[in-house]
Nucleic acid binder design. Structure first.
Lengths: 87, 87
DNA sequence: CCGGCTCATTGTAATATTGTAATATTTGGA
DNA sequence: TCCAAATATTACAATATTACAATGAGCCGG
């Protein structure tokens, strides 16, 4: 087991906003505006968290005109979230 | 789902040393000296990480004379680690 | 009671994370 | 081309985390 890599993954999930983002983006993809409205946080903060999730390979994005739609594409993260929501 | 609580849990696992500690302490309980030798880190550092794991309800301890034996008692964490080691 | 062994706590410097405002970029329509 | 909406990036202050040495505290054998 690669502790650096795995702990890095856990660290990204170790923030309430990102955890909520990930939970929502597993259910359905969503653009930045919707996410920031849903979570009630500023646009730059939303964008930064999403950038982090993207860089860690947790979410992927799809451009739809001027909008950017994010969704979770990481299977390991999906399995981890399943454990969290059941427990 | 309590995002604060769950992200807090993930954050604790978001450190390579603690992740390795938890993985080991699921398999068998261990005292501080053994842990620090195994991981090759100073005693105070070891003790601090263990204190954090204890405060977050991830590990429990048992005094055995002058030694302190730690082990993982948190089922949710055990399930999360199972996902990490399989994936 | 003194010694050493085991572990916990504290102090502190270095580093990382976070939140926000300000600014830049990209895109599509008039 | 010019504008506005949507998103990304940057800069920076505030805060949190981290590692380690030093010190403190508890337990036992002699």
């Amino acid at each position: 087991m690669d502790y650096e890599k795995m702990s890095d993954l856990m660290k990204v999930l170790g923030h309430p906003v990102r955890l909520q983002m990930v939970e929502g983006l597993i259910k359905h993809e969503c653009n930045v505006n919707k996410i920031m409205e849903k979570l009630g946080i500023p646009q730059s903060t939303t964008s930064q968290h999403l950038a982090l999730l993207k860089n860690k390979g947790i979410v992927s994005l799809r451009k739809e005109g001027v909008k950017t739609c994010y969704c979770v594409t990481n299977d390991l993260v999906k399995r981890l979230m399943a454990v969290l929501t059941k427990g």
